[in-house]
Design a protein around this nucleic acid. Structure first.
Length: 472
RNA sequence: GGUGGGGUGGCCGAGAGGCGAGGCAACGGACUGCAAAUCCGUGCACACGGGUUCGAAUCCCGUUCCCACCUCCA
């Protein structure tokens, strides 16, 4: 089957044919760094990380650009509230986002441009739009520059909306606009705003409008036409609609595919900064390991709503442990050297599921079926079959970014020495217990197990001896 | 008012005309000194009402409920 993705612009699943053979260019909207990341931000980045990994697995050379919006109204407001320079606040939260992405193994984009670093590119785009008759300086003397929505007849096409049918914003302030729907490309400086948040421009000092940065940056790094533009579903309108309008009005082909990930809800309600029902990745990481959090956030189809509720992570942990238990057992029995290479040989059913608009739930079904087959092989002492299953499982998990053998998920480096020491001590206990068991001294055997269990160490007996693991 | 997405077994979550995806939980069995893990089995699900069809969770008509976007939002 060929690679297909759902394209929001046409509301249909289409074959994905890269504009340049062998390559793929992806731009997706990162965060406005005005606060701590919440799980929804991470899910979005994860969805596009899964996309990136799959494009790579298909042999494409992928260029990924994710923006950082480091200047906007809220950043300025919050900086004042915090009595902190806006740029310090933006940078601080940018780091918090990076930390959250890193913790979950989200691959670094090829490049991560900041809005404030691309003012000249934005000016050039504004000038071009004015020349072409699609933008105009504000009719009052605010110093704003607006996109002229009525001048672009395709406006609304991304979300298939008609301007006249749209509900007017309740706080519609016409300011110097020709139409209430016109949006700011450039915002003139207002009294009281910090000088550091103001840049000179042909239309007066000011700062960029939100939508403009993406159009300017995507063109700079990926060209006037590129393969995929992604982002959260909530960005579809107005942000992506506006982006598309201004870029196409400037004569650019722009995105070939638009991909939008679904929202994360909290017990049925959308999580958002403005409502305040958010979950911090840090909080999730306190109740589950990074690998489990990644598995949980990535297990549903990227376009589905993902509803978080207490207990979700416990269930995900059970599923992850099932995979890990098999991999661990198979490595020790089928790969005595402990080295398992990612072959990239994926079951056809897995590939077919992934090719079909990244159907990860179906791909995970293949993964779990392979785990079961592997476990059965181990039970039958069919080492060859177990080895085959092991390689398939490792390759599949690797393609999804949840390979339990990946050093990304290894415990922190600091713990290595402690673990090694613990291993020596626990192994001594296991030997004593093995002795007791050969003597059928079950009381002693169980006592040793209980003592270890009380310390958070679980032991498991098998035909090949006993193994231990730290309860997590 | 406009646009879009949905209602699937105890829970999560795919599928989209015909063999009960998969995971979690539960129960029964096998294995085990006992556990744990693992394997096998059980549950006969598709909001409601009509219709089309040999056959519908999947198509059509109607009803109903939910959610998102239309203002900053991943």
């Amino acid at each position: 089957m060929t690679l297909r993705f759902y394209d929001s612009a046409t509301a249909s699943v289409r074959d994905f044919v890269p504009l340049t053979e062998g390559r793929a260019s992806v731009y997706y909207c990162g965060a406005t760094v005005q606060g701590e990341p919440h799980i929804g931000h991470v899910r979005s980045a994860l969805a596009f990380d899964q996309l990136t990994r799959w494009l790579q697995a298909k042999g494409l050379e992928v260029t990924v650009v994710r923006n950082v919006t480091d200047i906007d109204d809220k950043i300025l407001v919050k900086a004042v509230e915090n009595n902190e320079p806006w740029w310090a606040l933006a940078y601080r939260f940018e780091q918090a986002f990076e930390d959250a992405y890193d913790a979950l193994g989200i691959l670094k984009p090829t490049y991560e441009p900041r809005a404030t670093g691309h003012i000249p590119e934005m000016h050039a785009l504004i000038s071009l739009l004015i020349e072409r008759g699609h933008a105009y300086p504000a009719l009052d003397d605010s110093g704003d520059v607006y996109f002229d929505v009525r001048s672009w007849k395709q406006y609304g096409s991304l979300t298939r909306q008609n301007i006249d049918d749209m509900q007017a914003a309740p706080d519609a302030d016409p300011r110097g606009k020709k139409d209430a729907r016109d949006f700011a490309l450039w915002k003139g400086s207002k009294p009281g705003e910090p000088e550091t948040a103001s840049w000179a421009s042909p239309w007066g000092a000011g700062r960029p409008g939100w939508h403009l940065e993406c159009s300017a940056m995507v063109t700079k790094y990926l060209g006037t036409e590129f393969d995929i533009h992604g982002g959260g579903l909530d960005l579809r309108f107005p942000h992506h609609e506006n982006e598309m309008a201004q870029s196409q009005a400037a004569g650019h082909g722009f995105a070939n595919f638009w991909m939008h990930n679904g929202m994360v809800t909290f017990e049925g309600e959308k999580m958002s900064k403005s409502i305040g029902n958010t979950i911090n990745p840090r909080e999730m990481l306190q109740i589950a390991r990074p690998l489990v959090v990644r598995y949980y956030l990535g297990q549903a189809h990227y376009r589905s709503v993902l509803d978080y509720r207490p207990g979700s992570l416990t269930e995900a942990a059970a599923a992850v442990e099932r995979i890990e238990t098999f991999v661990k057992a198979a490595v020790s029995q089928a790969h005595s050297n402990g080295k398992v290479s990612v072959t990239g040989n994926l079951p056809d059913t897995f590939t077919a599921a992934m090719d079909d608009d990244l159907n990860i739930p179906a791909a995970l079904a293949v993964l779990h079926e392979t785990v079961r087959a592997g476990n059965t092989a181990l039970a039958k002492k069919d080492i060859e079959a177990a080895g085959v299953a092991l390689e398939a499982v490792v390759s599949m998990t690797d393609a999804l970014g949840i390979n339990p053998l990946d050093e990304q998920w290894a415990r922190g480096g600091d713990a290595t020495a402690e673990l090694a020491a613990l291993d020596v001590l626990v192994k001594a206990q296991l030997e004593a217990r093995a002795q007791a068991r050969t003597e059928k001294n079950w009381a002693e055997s169980d006592k040793i197990r209980d003592v270890l269990a009380a310390a958070g160490i679980d032991i498991a007996d098998s035909a090949n001896g006993s193994t231990w693991s730290l309860r997590r």
